[in-house]
């Protein structure tokens, strides 16, 4: 075993470095990613190692970053674009949805767009407006894109490399609130085996028998905490980190629900049209006769992301997740007194 303890942000940095060493067509593009190393220091030291042509500080224009990245892909490069904050991705929406996602299909496979779009996302860090969004569902709804999110350093290290190596465009959502959390990273590919996260596969983090709790990104640790707290009450929760949001790994989730008969999905993004809706519908189609209760969603509300002092009420936390678990188990819960 060749393991190293590092933060999630350092793991992405190390993964990017390895991708750049392995393939000299990999180019990093973004605002403040060069000398500064990015506002979250994800690209720290990379411009020093690889030069300003491979780690490009770009003008402040997100559509410009994505559009020129497409041109670079046409020219045989493999760009990795950093969107500085989740809420800054919208100016690039047209280039992502109308161009990045469709170029391969439009040209009947002649053009590949092996882009990685890195997006620091989510709340929980007391940020200003436009710095706490969870825009993933816009992109899971768009055909031609792959969408992933990581929750721990080992996944971050390996999934970023898979995303960069992918010939399909990948949106890589990085949970800001987990950037500074440390964990073990297996650096030797040969040693990975089961631990290696193949892009597209969900990961059962804790096995359980009573309820399946599905999440991704910043809420994975909260879900793990909830499972530990519930076990004190004798409730056994199986926690699944989706990791891949498009495609969704329904095989893993279905197998779990066939065992537990109950499912709670939690995410920071708004409820309506979110990933929870897709997981709930997919599981209802696949495991209807195994379900002992309707799927339960515990999500951010259908509101614009609130000011920092209100975010703790908006974001699902341990208690709200456990309340959802109680609902799924028909135990006394917040809805018990409602008609």
């Amino acid at each position: 075993m060749t393991t190293s303890t590092m933060t999630l942000s350092k793991a992405i940095n190390a993964g990017l470095r390895r991708s750049m060493e392995n393939d000299d067509t990999v180019i990093l593009m973004g605002e403040d990613i060069g000398k500064l190393g990015g506002v979250y220091r994800i690209t720290e030291g990379l411009q020093e190692s690889f030069g300003p042509r491979r780690v490009m500080d770009t003008p402040l224009a997100e559509s410009g970053i994505l559009g020129t990245a497409i041109g670079l892909a046409y020219a045989g490069y493999r760009p990795v674009c950093e969107i500085q904050f989740d809420g800054f991705i919208y100016p690039a929406f047209d280039q992502i949805v109308s161009q990045v996602a469709r170029m391969h299909s439009r040209t009947r496979g002649a053009v590949t767009v092996p882009l990685t779009i890195r997006v620091p996302f989510g709340g929980g860090i007391g940020s200003a407006e436009h710095h706490s969004d969870s825009p993933e569902a816009y992109f899971t709804h768009t055909s031609g894109l792959r969408v992933v999110s990581v929750s721990n350093p080992n996944d971050a290290y390996w999934v970023i490399q898979e995303a960069v190596a992918s010939n399909d465009p990948v949106l890589f959502f990085e949970p800001k609130r987990r950037y500074h959390v440390k964990g073990e990273v297996e650096l030797d590919e040969a040693e990975l085996d089961e631990v290696r996260p193949p892009m597209g596969a969900a990961h059962v983090l804790v096995e359980g028998t009573d309820v399946t709790l599905v999440t991704y990104g910043g809420l994975v640790q909260v879900a793990l905490d909830a499972a530990r707290a519930a076990s004190a009450d004798g409730i056994s929760i199986e926690v699944i980190d989706l990791r891949s949001l498009s495609p969704l790994d329904f095989e893993t989730v279905t197998r779990s629900v066939q065992k537990t008969g109950r499912i709670v999905i939690t995410h920071e993004a708004a409820e309506s049209g979110g990933l929870g809706a897709e997981v709930a519908a997919g599981i209802t189609e696949r495991a209807f006769y195994f379900l002992q209760h309707a799927p339960v969603r515990v999500t951010g509300f259908d509101i614009p992301f609130p000011p920092a002092k209100l975010e703790k009420y908006h974001l699902p936390d341990l208690d709200r997740i456990l309340d959802g678990v109680d609902r799924a188990l028909d135990r006394r819960n917040s809805l018990s007194e409602l008609g």
């Binding site: 990245a69 497409i70 041109g71 670079l72 045989g76």
Partner: peptide
């Protein structure tokens, strides 16, 4: 026009 510019960078 952005695609052309990116290609030119290549």
């Amino acid at each position: 026009t952005l695609h052309a510019t990116g290609y030119a960078l290549g």
